[in-house]
Structure formats: structure tokens, C-alpha cells
């Protein structure tokens, strides 16, 4: 697989939000057809990375190339054309609240194609069937549970048959059954539609089950990469700590802060 050119190529990525450095030299390749998992402790910037790939944020330094095009240098129209080939599942669904489930999924189709209504209906129902929510098509987003909303959002993400699909935490809030369904769905979508998938997740077992390639992010860099067996053999303490979920180790559980004792002794400020 590594002999093809990468679909997404990130080099020397630096990014900061205000004073806080989120990425400090990330190199990352995502190859077409595969499922790549991006893992890392909460708050390391996994969501941020997806936004950088989608061109919603611009890197402070370095390049993000998708399909050979530097995302952060594209003009609006080129960027929008590129985004039509990308689907994204947001962490909390991000359904449009003034439309029901059916209309939410029909929305990107209506926006970007001139298909007749009957065809749109067929397409939407097929996507809904795929996520097991065909019966919920008339519900409004506020009538959905968190997990259902995310599945609807997934159906919307694949509505236009994208080339790349990005999943931000697809498994949180799913019961074991729908979790299993989702895992299989992501894999079968990937095969059936020739997708390239990027999954951001904490659910190591589920993610590792389907991922061809795993990147571990921490402290603004890639600390380990490889397939699951490779990672399990990895010498990095990061990788072992993360994969085994040990509380102690090099991965800090805390957001960067001053020494606790010092902090407690200081009387002023928040």
C-alpha cells in the first residue's frame, strides 16, 4: 500500500491557538483506500487536525495537501470543490436543527446536484437504511438521542459519495450493538465506495479492529505510527501506555499547568 502516493500529505505542520502550541512539526501520510486511525489523549488536537485537513483552519507553518492540492493555499472556489469530495462526521453531529432527519440528509444533495425529487428520496432512504434509521426520517434533530444524531450525521456525510470520510469520535454514545454495526459500516463503506477514511477515536479496541494504520498524537507530534501489531511492539512508552490505558506513564493526564503545590500556595488569581 505504501508504494502509492498519499492522498493526504502533511509535512512539518505547526499550529497554535493563541499562545498554546497545538502542533509542533507533524508529518502524516494517509494513503487512498485505507482506514487511518488518529488517536491521542483528549485535547491534543485531533479535531483540530481534521479541521486543518478540511481547510477550516490554516496552519501557522508547514503544508497540508489533499489530493495533491495545498488546502491552505486554495482559493475559495477550489477549496469548496475539494470539500465536495470530503465528508465529515462532527463530534456532536452538527445536524441542521431547523430540518428533519430526511431533509438533513437531502440537504447536501439538493445543494450540489439537480437530481429529481424521486431520486433524492431513494438516495436518502438508502443512506438512512445503511445507518439503520430509515424509520426515524421524520424526526427533528432535537428528538434524536446523541447516538442517533451521530448516525444521521454519518448518513449525511456519505450522502454525496465522498472520496475521503473523516469521522470525529464516531463511537462515543453508541450502545454495543450499534457500535458493532457502525464499525462494520465504516469498514464496508470504505470497501464498497472506495473511500479513504480517517477515524479519530478513543475506543482503541473498535478502532484498531478496522484501522490499517494508526497514528498516535501527543504533545503536538506524532509519537508512534504503524499497524496495530507494530504498535504493540513499539518501543515507545507512549504507545504502550495509551494502548493499555495505564494512568501512569509519559502521557500526562493533566492539561499543562504549574506545579500543584506551588499553585495551591499561591493565594491570588484563578
Amino acid at each position: 500500500m505504501t508504494d502509492t502516493t498519499p492522498l493526504i500529505r502533511i509535512r512539518d505542520l505547526h499550529f497554535r491557538r493563541g499562545e498554546r502550541v497545538i502542533f509542533n512539526g507533524v508529518d502524516l501520510d494517509i494513503f487512498p483506500g485505507g482506514i487511518t486511525a488518529i488517536m491521542g489523549p483528549s485535547g491534543t488536537g485531533k479535531t483540530t487536525l481534521l479541521q486543518l485537513i478540511g481547510g477550516q483552519l490554516k496552519p501557522t507553518r508547514g503544508t497540508v495537501e489533499v489530493d495533491g492540492q495545498p488546502v491552505h493555499e486554495l482559493r475559495r472556489s477550489a477549496l469548496y470543490a475539494l470539500r465536495r469530495k470530503m465528508g465529515m462526521l462532527f463530534q456532536n453531529g452538527a445536524l441542521l436543527t431547523d430540518m428533519n432527519v430526511f431533509e438533513n440528509i437531502a440537504y447536501p444533495i439538493r445543494e450540489h446536484t439537480e437530481l429529481p425529487e424521486s431520486m433524492i428520496r431513494t438516495l436518502v432512504l438508502m443512506k438512512l437504511e445503511a445507518v439503520g434509521l430509515r424509520g426515524a426520517r421524520a424526526l427533528m434533530p432535537n428528538q434524536l438521542s446523541c447516538g442517533m444524531a451521530r448516525r444521521v450525521a454519518l448518513a449525511r456525510g456519505i450522502a454525496l459519495d465522498p472520496m475521503i470520510m473523516m469521522y470525529d469520535e464516531p463511537f462515543t454514545g453508541q450502545d454495543p450493538i450499534s457500535m458493532g454495526v457502525l464499525v462494520r459500516l465504516i469498514r464496508s463503506l470504505n470497501e464498497a465506495m472506495g473511500l479513504t477514511s480517517i477515524i479519530v477515536s478513543h475506543d482503541i479496541a473498535e478502532t484498531c479492529e478496522i484501522a490499517d494504520m494508526i497514528y498516535l498524537l501527543a504533545e503536538g507530534r506524532v509519537v508512534a505510527k504503524g499497524s496495530l501489531p507494530e504498535l504493540q511492539q513499539h518501543e515507545s512508552a507512549w504507545a504502550r501506555q495509551f494502548l493499555n490505558g495505564e494512568p501512569d506513564g509519559p502521557v500526562p493526564f493533566h492539561y499543562p499547568a504549574a506545579d500543584l503545590a506551588e499553585d495551591l500556595l499561591t493565594m491570588t488569581g484563578t
Binding site: 479541521q51 478540511g54 477550516q56 475559495r76 469548496y80 470543490a81 470539500r83 465536495r84 470530503m86 465528508g87 465529515m88 462532527f90 463530534q91 456532536n92 452538527a94 445536524l95 441542521l96 436543527t97 440537504y107 447536501p108 445543494e111 450540489h112 450525521a153 449525511r156 454525496l160
Partner: peptide, 18 residues
């Protein structure tokens, strides 16, 4: 503001809708 908070605006951008 609520559309922004619930990432609906971001989601639209990602759907290539301005």
C-alpha cells in the same frame, strides 16, 4: 450564535456550502 455553537456552520462549510 447557536448554529455556530452546535457546529452547524462548520458542518455547512464542510459540505461545501458557504
Amino acid at each position: 450564535g447557536l448554529m455556530k455553537t452546535t457546529e452547524q456552520l462548520s458542518a455547512m462549510e464542510m459540505m461545501a456550502v458557504d
